[in-house]
Design a protein around this nucleic acid. Structure first.
Length: 772
DNA sequence: ACTAAACTATTTTTT
DNA sequence: ATAGTTTAGT
């Protein structure tokens, strides 16, 4: 991984590299605030660390400082992060600072620390310590069964929705009983809380927990067993929390219980302006409330930014100031003003991709490394336009994020085989693979097994064993089931003889799973076989199957992501390194990273701020979107470019859009809006991005789009965005490009129009005229 | 029981 | 557009 991926502030990172362990020289080079945050050890402390102010450095130095000064031994330190990546990084950096690796630290994600605690005391919450951890897929399948059992209309109330509902409840630390008294809408005829209760009962029977349970069970444990809790109090002298603004209520309760009242010292680091996970239960309120929650708390603000040049920082600060209800920070930098932020409009999404491609190629040929470019998008579908464009011009890129390796169907199947192997009573896994590959055990057979299992309160596996001794199944099905069970017996007996990865290979072969994909002629089948191979080799790194299972359920690491582009075309010249690629990712996954040049495409109303965010959370949602914009801008060191398109294809439909209101939020002094783009939209003509100076942009190439220019010239002055449309349903209208049509729906100034020639389109009011 | 065709929902972000 | 799911046909 290139340097940029190690996040945070590269410049301060480089300073730390020269340090040695001999003295407390790790303190050198910290500014006053940073140093105070490291050395203020007693009592609750909130470090408000703005973007690029050296947050991670403070956290890791603080850990190193506590250990180095002997204030506490590593095992008395608890440090929690949100991502495994952050946790790994922190361990590494602490080791670097101290000059030796550190053992015994309780450092990990909220969930991995919770598992560790829960495995120690599982019986208290009614579990066995070898409980399994379910993922969303398992949860949804389970919920689906429960919904079916209640004859709930799954079209109307899908299991997926209930799954998120339950997750959100657990984020808030709610039990089924508490949910009874809150308003959850009419889901499942108002019976959602009953299903929630049944679901929890099922989990207990299955000796399983979901992600949310890891925290809520811990909370129950702490609340009911004061002895155990006070042991943890004695153990953890110092608690450190990263990204505090992203904690949900359950995590907050968990922390408060662990932090106790007296002797411990809790230090939370975060930035309310970078809270972007409200949609999955995070509560900015936690960080805003810190002083009340922890009386006598000290608050240290880190405001010197070491990352971005002046204009970028000012633009970002001006933007975020439009939010109300923030703790408030004033970021500043010693750096020059640098480039202003460039805001440019394009005709459509494809042109946007083309423009960014051109800009990157030019800078690349001028000597920039591709790793130093990032394209940060709001929604993952936006990456496609860039991938297509970059593939066609042979510009190497990588997409960070995307589907996770362990969530792929074939990987989950293989894991289900492992789960049944080591834990035959794991019903969810058993069910998943019983007829995968097809072995003649369809609905009817499964029904019979299920029935017996339910009526006798035994697992599917046990029920199957009984059933093969009866004639309840037709002989073909019975033989097949018996073969299936025998196979597992045999594989299990080989566990001691062969290394586990070989057993997995044997299972995949002998179960027919491999041949199933070999026989499959769909284009993705070879890839799936590849993935299975990759899994087999990945598993070699683990001591045992169970160690591996624990890893996959907790460390939901992503694969490296897609890579594309033609290497050769760019291979000449000394600037090209093997892994030199443009980075494409969502704004969310960009948090914590930084790049020289950042492109922020798709700044259009509806996409960014995203319509769903506004619909679901109103002004709160808008503010979170704005924070996301802030996060995006502050990723840039030297250059940031914001782009918007007048038209975009979304689910195979063309949508016309207006520029994001966030563009209006940017202070005019720090940006180039290409002069009059918004008032004279004919400047939507293609512009070149690379020939500007600080004061002006030179328009270089023009597209032959005269017809479009006419369209723009006729535009009415932009009205207040929230005002409604001039049109009402059934009005006849004319569109420059789409012809005549009839309005079928009016939503603010957005219209659905059924055009006579081209069918239904979404169009903004001012693009159409009344039919004469 | 399996397969193919038809239909449908789904596209914000993820520990 | 695509993937996933349901349905009807073999």
């Amino acid at each position: 991984m290139p340097n940029t991926f190690d996040s945070d502030d590269t410049r301060s990172l480089m300073r730390t590299k020269t340090l040695t362990m001999n003295s407390s020289s790790y303190l050198d080079g910290l500014n006053d605030d940073q140093r105070a945050a490291v050395e203020s050890l007693e009592g609750p402390l909130l470090v408000l660390a703005g973007a690029g102010t050296g947050k991670t450095r403070v956290l890791t130095t603080r850990l190193a400082h506590i250990i180095h000064t002997g204030n506490a031994s590593p095992s008395q330190l608890l440090a929690v992060t949100f991502t495994n990546k952050a946790a790994r990084q922190m361990i590494d950096r602490v080791g670097n600072l101290l000059g030796h690796s550190v053992d015994g630290l309780w450092l990990g994600t909220f969930h991995s620390v919770a598992v560790r605690i829960l495995r120690m005391h599982a019986e208290i919450v009614g579990l066995k310590s070898n409980f399994t951890i379910l993922d969303t897929d398992d949860q949804t399948r389970l919920l689906k069964q429960l919904l079916q059992a209640r004859n709930v209309d799954e079209k109307r109330w899908p299991a997926r929705n209930l799954c998120t509902m339950i997750q959100r409840w657990k984020d808030r630390g709610l039990t089924p009983k508490q949910v009874e008294n809150i308003d959850f809408g009419d889901f499942a005829n108002g019976e959602a809380y009953l299903i929630f209760r049944e679901y929890q009962e099922r989990l207990r029977v299955l000796n399983a927990v979901d992600f949310g349970d890891l925290l809520t069970h811990c909370i129950t444990l702490f609340q009911n067993e004061t002895d155990i809790l006070s042991n943890f109090h004695k153990r953890f002298r110092y608690i450190l929390v990263d990204e505090y603004q992203d904690t949900n209520i359950a995590q907050y309760l968990w922390l408060r219980l662990l932090a106790g009242t007296g002797q411990q010292n809790i230090c939370c680091v975060g930035d309310d302006d970078q809270s972007i996970y409200g949609w999955r239960g995070a509560e900015v309120g936690n960080i805003l409330r810190f002083e009340k929650d922890f009386p006598g708390a000290e608050i240290i603000r880190l405001e010197q930014n070491y990352r971005s040049s002046g204009n970028i920082l000012a633009a970002a600060s001006g933007l975020i100031e439009k939010n109300v209800g923030r703790l408030g920070k004033t970021l500043w930098t010693d750096d020059d003003l640098g480039h202003p932020v460039v805001v440019t409009g394009n005709w459509d999404g494809e042109e946007e991709a083309r423009a960014i491609g051109i800009a990157i190629e030019e800078k690349f040929h001028a000597g920039s490394s591709l790793n130093e470019f990032a394209i940060l998008v709001r929604a993952s579908f936006q990456t496609r336009a860039f991938e297509e464009r970059f593939l066609s011009i042979g510009l190497p890129y990588r997409v960070i994020g995307g589907p996770r390796f362990y969530e792929r169907q074939e990987i989950r199947d293989a894991i289900a085989y492992i789960r049944v192997l080591i834990q035959p009573d794991d019903d969810l896994a058993f069910e998943r693979i019983l007829n995968v590959p097809k072995r003649g055990l369809g609905d009817a057979s499964q029904q019979i097994i299920h029935q017996l299992a339910r009526s006798s309160q035994i697992s599917l596996h046990q029920a199957s064993r009984i059933i093969i001794g009866t004639d309840e199944l037709k002989s073909a099905a019975r033989n097949s089931l018996s073969q299936f069970l025998e196979n597992f017996e045999r594989w299990r007996s080989e566990l001691d003889e062969k290394p586990h990865w070989e057993i997995l290979e044997v299972i995949m072969d002998e179960s027919g799973y491999t041949s199933m994909w070999q026989a499959d002629k769909s284009p993705q089948a070879p890839g799936r076989l590849e993935n299975i191979k990759e899994l087999i080799s990945a598993i070699e790194d683990f001591e045992s199957f169970s160690a591996f299972i624990e890893h996959v359920s907790l460390v939901m690491d992503r694969e490296n992501g897609r890579e594309g582009g033609v290497q050769n075309r760019f291979s000449r010249g000394q600037a090209t390194k093997q892994n030199d690629m443009v980075n494409i990712m969502t704004l969310h996954s960009a948090k914590g990273l930084e790049f020289d040049t950042v492109f922020l495409p798709g700044w259009e109303e509806g996409l960014f701020p995203h319509q769903l965010a506004l619909d679901e959370k109103g002004s709160e949602g808008l503010e979170e979107e704005r924070r996301l914009a802030y996060v995006g801008l502050t990723r840039a060191r030297k250059e940031a470019q914001i782009l918007f398109a007048a038209n975009r294809r979304v689910y195979n439909q063309w949508i016309s859009a207006i520029p994001s209101r966030f563009i209006d939020d940017l202070p005019v002094d720090n940006i180039i809006t290409n002069s009059l783009i918004k008032n004279h939209p004919k400047l939507y003509e293609k512009t070149s991005y690379s020939h500007y100076t600080q004061d002006s942009i030179t328009l270089v190439s023009k597209d032959s789009r005269n017809d479009l220019n006419v369209l723009w010239e006729e535009e009415k002055p932009v009205k207040n965005r929230n005002s409604g449309s001039r049109f009402k349903t059934n009005d006849r209208v004319v569109h420059r490009k789409f012809g005549v049509g009839r309005v079928s729906k009016v939503d603010g100034e957005k219209l659905d129009i059924i055009f006579d020639r081209v069918g239904i389109k979404k169009v903004v009011d001012r693009f159409v005229e009344p039919e004469k």
